[in-house]
């Protein structure tokens, strides 16, 4: 359509418009629509633009506020313990001696466990939906997987307490300790409530994220990559491995890291199954504690400034870690989905 972008100022108005009563216009002798003078709407535009700018700035302000409040309120703890805060084992609110290492350990181990379970499953699902499954199944399948993302965290926790935990303690844990007990990772009483349970429930929660991003990334891989592999006589799996997965590496990595970000900050479901004991145990059957869980459990009951600020310092650490992780993930996903796949001619 050849519509001119803007009316030329010197064009006469086709019809008088009633909004001519705007003051400040020089008399023109005839009724001219004010917009043709280029003055009308300018004030409105300016007000509108600044109002929208304020909203945009609000987004920026929220982030600044988060950083400011966390740094300000964690000050007392930082002054009292310094870097030792992150290396100390003791969490002793009575004597006001705080070390965050057990929580950091718990967060890292549970998230790592979740990735260990979730990554192969998510990639498998993504590969199946993009490369193997019949077209009619594709839509419903991705819908169902994304439905997993819509379930609130607390409902996962509820389900885990009443279904997953009994399942673990009756069947999975006895089996694991009998078969893999020699590794030292699966020893101890099979109570169900454990680091293992936290890892499993986390993995269920991050599968939708990783698999949906992996699917997006796989779909960006150019079709001729697949065709080229097939033309060279590759089987379907060889085509997927050489032509698809290898091209999508960076994007899949981004999806995994995004899932990691979610797992690190996940609170409720983990708090309900991990056992909440600030200890560092080698066995995955032992209870643990994560940074997010300790906040959920102790924040509203924290007495004393140092206690509260120690908790907020844990929050700050969690915040910084997730920011770094998320920024990294976004960068990786962007490089893949925006431009061409990085190694289109590998």
């Amino acid at each position: 359509m050849a519509i001119p972008a803007l009316p030329r100022p010197d064009m006469p108005a086709p019809q008088p418009v009633e909004a001519t009563k705007v003051s400040g216009l020089p008399p023109t002798g005839r009724e001219v629509a004010p917009f043709l003078r280029g003055t009308s709407g300018e004030t409105g535009d300016r007000i509108f633009k600044s109002a929208m700018l304020v909203c945009g700035l609000a987004v920026l302000a929220i982030l600044v506020l988060i950083v400011y409040e966390l740094m300000l309120r964690s000050g007392p703890s930082w002054h009292a313990f310094g870097f030792k805060f992150f290396a100390g084992h003791d969490w002793d609110p009575v004597n006001e001696h705080f070390g965050a290492l057990p929580f950091i350990y718990g967060t890292l181990v549970s998230s790592f466990l979740a990735l260990l379970i979730a990554v192969p499953l998510s990639i498998g699902v993504a590969v199946f939906t993009t490369e193997m499954c019949p077209a009619a199944l594709r839509g419903p399948l991705s819908f169902f997987v994304e439905l997993l993302a819509a379930i609130p965290s607390v409902v996962y926790g509820l389900w885990a307490i009443f279904v997953l935990i009994p399942l673990l303690s009756h069947y999975v844990q006895p089996f694991l300790s009998k078969t893999f007990g020699w590794t030292g990772l699966f020893v101890g009483p099979p109570y169900g409530i454990s680091m293992l349970a936290a890892g499993i429930i986390l993995s269920i929660m991050i599968i939708p994220i990783i698999s949906s991003i992996t699917r997006e990334v796989l779909m960006v891989v150019p079709q001729h990559q697949r065709e080229a592999a097939l033309a060279l006589g590759a089987t379907r799996w060889e085509m997927i491995r050489v032509g698809v997965l290898r091209n999508a590496r960076a994007g899949i990595m981004g999806g995994i890291i995004l899932g990691l970000g979610r797992a690190l900050g996940e609170t409720m479901a983990v708090t309900m199954v991990i056992g909440n004991r600030p200890e560092i145990a080698k066995s995955l059957f032992a209870p643990g504690y994560t940074m997010a869980s300790v906040l959920a459990n102790e924040f509203s009951e924290a007495t004393g400034d140092v206690y509260l600020s120690a908790l907020i310092e844990i929050g700050l650490a969690l915040f910084l870690v997730t920011i770094v992780v998320n920024a990294l993930a976004r960068l990786l996903v962007w490089t893949v989905t925006r431009g061409q796949p990085s190694r289109a001619n590998a």
């Binding site: 945009g56 987004v59 506020l65 988060i66 409040e69 970000g261 609170t267 915040f319 997730t322 992780v325």
Partner: peptide, 24 residues
């Protein structure tokens, strides 16, 4: 910058946002 900030905010753990709302 705002776009990136929004994306970053999206990834902030909800419990941390709870702390900030508590503080404010």
């Amino acid at each position: 910058i705002i776009r990136f900030t929004a994306d970053v905010l999206n990834g902030v753990p909800s419990i941390v946002i709870g702390i900030v709302a508590y503080a404010i």
